[in-house]
């Protein structure tokens, strides 16, 4: 896959991540706007003590990370490429923890969170690694 294609794919994934995180941020402050299927899993996850980290909603952190990822992808340099990969791996580590929380601690699934944690972040990490590999050598 060409570097250009990988970059476009990364931008698309970041845009999707921003959309999901923005929605989760919005429903954090406007809970009645939550659109969710299932038996209350969204509410359980969104209202749990784990949804806020040192006073900051996890959704807001996610939004900030996705915006940073998009900015790094647009900033098309070697350093940005490296930082994107690091950001992706850091995010993957944290979202793995969030998935474990949903499955085994809260026993409730928020499909929007899962879309971010299981689909978008791993995809973003994979694309970032592929793009790093395809970077031209000095």
């Amino acid at each position: 896959m060409s570097d250009r294609l990988l970059r476009v794919a990364l931008i698309v994934v970041c845009a999707a991540g921003i959309a999901v995180a923005a929605y989760l941020t919005y429903v954090h402050y406007q809970p009645e706007a939550l659109i969710c299927t299932g038996s209350g899993g969204c509410e359980t996850v969104q209202d749990s003590n784990y949804a806020v980290l040192v006073g900051i909603p996890v959704a807001v952190l996610g939004l900030a990370v996705w915006i940073a990822a998009l900015a790094l992808t647009i900033w098309n340099t070697d350093l940005a490429r490296t930082l994107t990969t690091a950001l992706a791996i850091g995010s993957l580590t944290f979202t793995t923890y969030l998935v474990i929380l949903q499955l085994f601690v809260l026993e409730a699934i928020c499909p929007w969170c899962m879309a971010n944690d299981v689909v978008l972040v791993p995809l973003f990490t994979m694309l970032a690694l592929l793009r790093l590999r395809s970077a031209p050598d000095a």
């Binding site: 980290l53 490296t82 930082l83 690091a86 791996i89 850091g90 580590t93 944290f94 970077a135 000095a138």
Partner: peptide, 26 residues
């Protein structure tokens, strides 16, 4: 372009920092 060895070192440091930050957040 940054030399590959130098880039690898930056990458290793950046990943280590990111993972440490993630672990601290967890």
């Amino acid at each position: 372009p940054v030399p590959k060895t130098h880039r690898n070192r930056i990458l290793a440091i950046a990943i280590a920092v990111a993972v440490v930050i993630a672990i601290v957040l967890v």
